[in-house]
Design a protein around this nucleic acid. Sequence first.
DNA 1: GCTTAGTTTCAAAAGTTATTGAAATTTCTA
DNA 2: TAGAAATTTCAATAACTTTTGAAACTAAGC
Lengths: 222, 222
Amino acid sequence: MSEVETVRQAFVQLWGSMGHFWGISPTTARIYSWLLSRSEPADTDEIMEGLEMSRGAVSMACRELREWQLIFPEKVSGSRRVAYRPATDLEKVIRNIVEIRKRREWDPILESLREWIPRLESDGSPEAAVFRQRLEDLESLIALTDSIVKVFLRGGVVGKLGLKMLVKAARDDAALDVSSGSGPGAEVKIQPEALRISDIQQHDSLVARAESAYRKALEESS
Amino acid sequence: MSEVETVRQAFVQLWGSMGHFWGISPTTARIYSWLLSRSEPADTDEIMEGLEMSRGAVSMACRELREWQLIFPEKVSGSRRVAYRPATDLEKVIRNIVEIRKRREWDPILESLREWIPRLESDGSPEAAVFRQRLEDLESLIALTDSIVKVFLRGGVVGKLGLKMLVKAARDDAALDVSSGSGPGAEVKIQPEALRISDIQQHDSLVARAESAYRKALEESS
DNA sequence: GCTTAGTTTCAAAAGTTATTGAAATTTCTA
DNA sequence: TAGAAATTTCAATAACTTTTGAAACTAAGC
């Protein structure tokens, strides 16, 4: 068995177990990843053989993948067969899936929370107050995640700067780990203070300073 | 039925359907959310009645919640009963879960990808090259997500600035949506250019400019 | 229009996960 | 220490999801 085949099998296995993240079944995920691992499209028979599945399972899964626009049918000339070509721009793919799932599944969660919170306000009991506080905390967390996803989906100067900052911070931390791991007191790590959501969400004029410095630098470089 | 009870039922239903995100079963998730909706801890009988479950199901689920440190057992004085108090600092809860799942599930994905990519390099076939490119794209995407999660878990000045930028960007976008939705040409939206991961990951001296402006502003304000 | 290659559909079967309830076990009190 | 309150465990059962394979259907070629 070739190296490609070995990696392919492991990749298909891995992607299959991640299927639930994408909102598709493991089988459907496995077909998509199998197609991704190839340089050419494949028809139903090839998929059946490659993944040892029934024709019916392949058909159902391919229909779902088409609905998600993860595969595209192509006619095989001189034959009645349809070959399936996977969507290969993975950034676009993931954007598409995140966008669809955000709209269908995640946004309704935020909406529900925002509906419930004022309803608990009008009930004056201590239990309602406790419950409401917890829903508010949860709403803050989910709203932060929503912000990150929105920027990922939409782009823009400030969002890009934010993401670059995050990447830099993670990189800086990794470098700090390496340097603090090489001395005699290697177990001692400087642990920054944990972020609080309320702090992150708060309007901050210092952030505006950083933003305008970045914009000025952008102008000067173009 | 009271307003609290109505919202509670909807919340428990919602949280139960989100259980898979946390890596726990719907039943286990429902118990946790039910406990969150109350101002006082509850014992096994109360949970059984409140959620209409068997004693066995409650016992198994509570064991799992304890393992995740989502609930804490408390002795009920004058009785042999144990009451369960939920962890209520939701930021900490989510951090804990994200950290555990990152270590157990998500980090191994990145590791696998980073193992496979060089293996495909030594196979000179066109198919290996195509497959390798796709694995590299995927690795980039997951590494970005990993960066964001790392910052969320660890904090730090640069990470905090990055998150604040993202929140600001999302807020700015929302404001832009509102203002562009109120004119006669309301269907016309300015769509910023989509972010590319390779761009975000690239070292950028302009980001350093923004960062030092922020640090300077921090010093001046303290 | 007929034939047939190829695909889709769906009920039955298979596989997986969740729940139950009673036996087993643990722990506390008198 | 015995008894019983309370919980845990786990095999059986129930519920849910996935897969199969053959009947039904579609579409292309002659």
